[in-house]
């Protein structure tokens, strides 16, 4: 049994990084506007489908990988400006219901456009195959995922902490009325922030379809672990999401060694324990969402 632990820790790390990036996208949107975005998974799926279609039409993988998330962001901005914006300032339940409805509509639209069949999405040859790590052979594609996610985390951190825009964004999370009074266009801030969250979702979406089958439910299957990640990490904390994501990933992987039947449940158990001991989550701020 013990010789399996090393590989499982590594597997868990990759899985966790994945949950974390989806969770951070959710967190960004939740922190600033209180929107619990149930359509997050749909945007992931959308980016996956767009990348698939581009590649099927002869586009280079790397181009599709960069452009598909951006197209998803474009759709997200339209949705934010037309549908979600009127609900800011209301109870979070309104936007939750709206985005939940959107995710159902999106699923049917995917069904209509791309069919019910799972589509074959293959990463390019450079990213297929395995790499010998000594203790195990690890798929190159998963290493690529880790690389992309680390870069995305770093870029996000730089953006939030070393740019004026990032400064305004963080300030708005603290007190958006004050920021508005000081002359910042908060509506624009909300839109860009929403787009940023969806950009992360889009990147995760395209990465996911190299790992999972691409169909209308792909994104939503990853949404639940991401929500759990946000709750364990604590609302309002991006680092919390990162730590919680990795924690869940490793816990899930190790669980498959000992009690596979509990591997899908372990994150909920973790969530229950964290909520009991520390209701705001590991790194969460107190009082968010009342």
């Amino acid at each position: 049994m013990l010789e399996h632990v090393g590989p499982q820790l590594f597997n868990g790390l990759v899985l966790g990084a994945f949950y974390a990036i989806v969770a951070i996208g959710l967190s960004l949107i939740m922190n600033l506007t209180g929107t619990i975005n149930m359509a997050h998974g749909s945007f992931m799926t959308l980016a996956g489908y767009l990348a698939f279609t581009m590649i099927a039409r002869g586009t280079n993988f790397w181009f599709a990988f960069l452009v598909a998330p951006l197209l998803a962001v474009l759709v997200a901005i339209i949705v934010e400006r037309t549908l979600i914006r009127p609900l800011y300032g209301r109870d979070p339940v309104y936007s939750l219901l709206l985005t939940f409805g959107l995710s159902l509509i999106a699923e049917e639209v995917f069904h209509l456009v791309w069919g019910a069949n799972t589509l074959p999405f293959t990463p390019p040859a450079v990213l297929s195959g395995t790499l010998a790590l000594g203790f195990m052979n690890f798929p190159v594609y998963r290493l690529f995922i880790v690389l992309v996610l680390v870069l995305a985390f770093a870029a996000l951190a730089l953006f939030l902490y070393y740019t004026r825009f990032g400064l305004r964004l963080r300030a708005a999370v603290q007190d958006s009325e004050m920021i508005a009074a000081l002359g910042t266009n908060t509506q624009m801030l909300y839109t860009i922030n929403f787009g940023l969250g969806i950009l992360l979702a889009g990147i995760a979406g395209v990465l996911a379809v190299g790992l999972l089958g691409l169909n209308m439910t792909t994104g939503n299957t990853l949404l639940m672990p991401a929500f759990v990640t946000v709750i364990i990490g604590g609302m309002g904390s991006l680092y919390g999401s990162l730590v919680a994501g990795v924690l869940i990933g490793i816990a899930t992987s190790l669980m498959t060694l000992y009690v596979p039947a509990a591997s899908e449940v372990i994150m909920y158990i973790l969530m229950a324990v964290v909520l009991t001991i520390r209701p705001r989550g590991l790194f969460g701020e107190e009082g968010l969402f009342g």
């Binding site: 399996h4 899985l15 990853l222 498959t256 596979p260 039947a261």
Partner: peptide
């Protein structure tokens, strides 16, 4: 034998046990 819960998305933890 690996009993995988229905709807498992990540099989890596199971698959790494196959080779040994």
């Amino acid at each position: 034998t690996d009993l995988t819960p229905l709807g498992t998305t990540d099989f890596s933890s199971y698959l790494t046990k196959v080779t040994p």
